[in-house]
């Protein structure tokens, strides 16, 4: 079902349908996900006969639906269906996605994933905030670091003392 995009620019109606080829990527993702779900369903043993709803049933239904949706999305894409990307207060859709920002932010987040238990939240949390603020364009180093450190130490103690949730102290173990 080709949905007409509501935000087609009124200026030049495209003679040929504009194909958002990135959307094929989403269709492939759905296909892979669907295939995995179905494949996983086939590996489920159907246990005792009293099991009226074997655990594979839902997997088959959901997996098959994902596969079907993948095909539908690919067809819709080929027929010129373009998504209305989400708008917002701070969103400027005029340009494309800023891949550099995205990759850098993912890197900053990954640093935290791998180092949080080694270095501890007070350190990685501060790196996370400062790094993210830098990636997003802030260049006030002193202020960025100060806010980052204040936030990470503040939340560390707030979670420990206020909520009773110990966050990893890491290299500062014993100091804090």
């Amino acid at each position: 079902m080709p949905e007409q995009s509501q935000q087609i620019p009124q200026t030049t109606p495209p003679a040929r349908p504009v194909v958002d080829s990135a959307q094929y990527g989403m269709a492939v993702f759905l296909a892979v996900a669907g295939a995995y779900v179905v494949d996983n369903g086939t590996q489920m043993r159907s246990s005792a006969s009293k099991d009226f709803l074997p655990p594979s049933t839902f997997a088959y239904v959901v997996g098959a639906a994902l596969l079907a949706l993948s095909v539908l999305l690919a067809v819709a894409t080929a027929r010129g269906d373009t998504p209305d990307a989400e708008d917002g207060e701070d969103v400027d859709l005029a340009g494309g996605s800023d891949v550099r920002t995205l990759v850098l932010l993912a890197a900053v987040l990954s640093v935290n994933v791998f180092l949080i238990e080694l270095l501890g939240w007070p350190v990685t949390g501060a790196i996370l905030f400062t790094g993210a603020a830098w990636v997003l364009g802030s260049r006030h180093w002193v202020r960025d670091v100060a806010i980052g450190v204040a936030l990470s130490f503040g939340t560390f103690y707030a979670f420990y003392l206020g909520l009773g949730v110990p966050l990893p102290a890491g290299i500062l173990n014993g100091v804090l």
Partner: peptide
Amino acid sequence: PRPYLYAGILFFATL
């Protein structure tokens, strides 16, 4: 400032 707003969201999401 937007860098702080969105860095803050990432920070608290992680937390």
